[in-house]
Design a protein around this nucleic acid. Sequence first.
DNA 1: AACAGGGGCAACCGCTTGCCG
DNA 2: TCGGCAAGCGGTTGCCCCTGT
Length: 385
Amino acid sequence: MGHHCCSKQKVKRGLWSPEEDEKLVKYITAHGHSCWSAVPKHAGLQRCGKSCRLRWINYLRPDLKRGTFSDHEERTIIDVHRILGNRWAQIAKHLPGRTDNEVKNFWNSCIKKKLIAQGLDPKTHNLLPASRTLLHGNGANPSSNNPAHFNSNGCAAVVSVATTPFTISSPTKAAAYGTVTATPPPETMAPATYDVPNNYPDGMLMRHDQAATAAAIPGYPYHPGNGGGVLMSFRDQNAGLQTSVDFVNGSSSSSSMDHAAGMPNGNGFSQQGMGAAFMDVTAGMWSTAAVDSGMCAGMEVAQPPPPPPQQPLPPQGLVQGEVLVGRQTVMNGGGAVADKGMDMMDVSSVYGGAGAMAFDLELMESCALFCGSTGNTMEQLQWDC
DNA sequence: AACAGGGGCAACCGCTTGCCG
DNA sequence: TCGGCAAGCGGTTGCCCCTGT
């Protein structure tokens, strides 16, 4: 049975011979591929157009990078997969020269097994139940016995996986946060721990310096030369609660909440509440996340105050971002309601000023959907945009 | 040397999306 | 607005090769 597009033709299937490859390369090089269905006929191939397209995209394209994946590429795949899930084409866009098929195969044959071996669920990137039990006993984490670790009274300066449930992880960019003393995460992608200085009585301030990051971390994907960006992930290992924010090339922003239901005793946030704000200076927007009392979660992009005219914006990209964590620093300027109750996430956005940078709705939505939020999320987002 | 089992990867299948008439 | 077609995409299959017995 051939493809529906070529069922009337007698087409060859299976592996491509070098002769077939040569014919296809010659034809595409000379004529391009304006219409794939016409390619096999003109190239003298007994294949269907779909097969030709796949062969070209996955194997013959001259800009493809062959060979094994580097450690950096592997880390990037894991980072992006944590946010996007099995959106291989989107993930592959972060890896120049790699195809979605290649990334998918690498994930299924290698990375997935590694994560499982490390006790992480390859779908959610959370600890598998067995591993969680190992870390936290029976898994119960009464918040009354385990007060919030990023709380409004600023008492919890040190985050420790072994004793507290809340971690901040940004595996490939750990060294980026100038005001956070970050312990470089191990290769295992196990939850990283950050020693957070208690300079802010009402919360915590993290600052990201793009140039320093690019200089400090070989292979760091975001730098001023390509527009910059930041990928951050906050996670609560006990509750399976995760908040990730990805600013790619200064034009994309995403947030996600992976909220495992059925946490009867709350988590590290629940007593005091937690909020985070991310600012993309160039795009002129704030993104905030709030987890308020009673496990209420909200993500929003609020309109920033107009920048002082005498303060020129950085040349490009997310040159500098700030993360504010603390009860009193939650931004609600976007009008989003943070208190939406269990298992709900709210995202809204308001662009700041004329000519605001494009906002990657697709990526935003993918993150929201991946994390099981309601359809209202994107409706709210698009409405506000 | 022969065989079995498993892993990796290329290719296929079928659904979705986008475009155009 | 609708239908047809092509392209895009993710899941799945099956072949080939390597390794262990």
